[in-house]
Amino acid sequence: MSIRHSLLALLQERPRYGYQLRTEFEDRTGSSWPLNIGQVYTTLDRLERDGLVEQNGADAEGHIVYSITDAGRAEAREWFGAAVSRTSPPRNELAIKLALALTLPAVDVGALIQAQRAVSIRTLQEYTRTRREAVAHLRAADTARLLVLDSLIFQTEAEVRWLDLCEARLMQLAGPA
């Protein structure tokens, strides 16, 4: 996830301070990926260093307000215009854990798969319930949240299917019973 580009995108609407950016990001993504406020301010510092945002001084409460520069607008446009590359997939902790578990004799891989499946199914149920509630009270602003929830649902469904495959392969390794 590119926090850098997300902040630039939000600053295109109007100048904001860090906490406002954090709140807007979480609101627009359905609070699916909470941002650490320290990470927001660190990213703003880097964006300022790179000439993509600038400080506009402080508001009445003393918050430093940031605005996007022309270079920042250009980078945001470029980000929205480019497809997300799949050449370097993000690390998947579960895949790493299972791969390592298969190579270590003291790990019960079957139990690991079962425990993860239970968590994944509970998570899928929660996402589905949240989506159903969002649809029941649909407002125009909720469309972005629904897109994020749909993505999370599809990813979790895929994870459960993958866990089924892992279990099937594990049984193949064990041989005929």
Rank of each mutant, 00 (worst) to 15 (best):
I3L: 14
I3Q: 05
R4M: 12
H5W: 09
H5N: 13
L8R: 01
L8Q: 00
L11P: 05
Q12L: 07
E13P: 05
P15W: 03
R16D: 01
R16S: 11
Y17W: 14
R22F: 05
T23R: 05
T23Q: 09
E24S: 15
F25E: 01
F25T: 05
E26P: 08
T29M: 14
G30K: 00
S31P: 00
P34T: 15
P34S: 13
P34D: 09
P34W: 05
Q39L: 15
Q39D: 10
V40Q: 04
Y41I: 14
T43I: 06
T43G: 08
E48R: 12
E48W: 15
E48H: 14
R49T: 14
L52N: 02
V53H: 00
E54D: 04
Q55W: 05
Q55H: 02
Q55C: 08
N56R: 05
A58W: 03
D59W: 06
E61G: 09
E61Y: 14
G62K: 03
H63L: 08
Y66D: 00
S67P: 01
S67M: 00
I68P: 00
D70A: 12
D70M: 07
R73T: 11
E75Q: 08
E75G: 10
A76F: 08
E78T: 15
W79I: 15
F80T: 03
G81P: 09
A82Y: 03
V84N: 02
R86K: 13
R86W: 11
T87R: 04
P90L: 07
R91P: 01
E93K: 06
L94C: 02
K97H: 05
K97L: 09
L100V: 13
T103A: 12
T103H: 08
P105Q: 11
D108K: 11
G110N: 01
L112T: 12
Q114D: 13
A115P: 06
A115W: 07
R117P: 14
A118Y: 04
T123N: 13
T123K: 12
T123R: 07
E126R: 13
Y127T: 11
Y127P: 01
T128A: 07
T128V: 11
A134Y: 02
V135Q: 01
A140L: 12
A141T: 02
A141L: 01
D142F: 02
R145Y: 07
L146T: 00
L147W: 07
L147C: 11
V148T: 05
V148E: 06
L149C: 00
L149I: 02
L149D: 00
D150I: 00
D150S: 02
I153L: 06
F154D: 08
Q155A: 12
Q155L: 13
T156Q: 10
E157L: 10
A158Y: 04
V160K: 04
R161E: 06
W162T: 04
L163Y: 04
L165V: 09
C166A: 07
C166R: 05
C166Y: 06
E167F: 11
E167R: 10
A168D: 14
R169M: 13
M171S: 15
Q172R: 12
L173G: 06
L173K: 02
A174C: 09
A174K: 11
G175E: 01
P176G: 10
A177V: 13
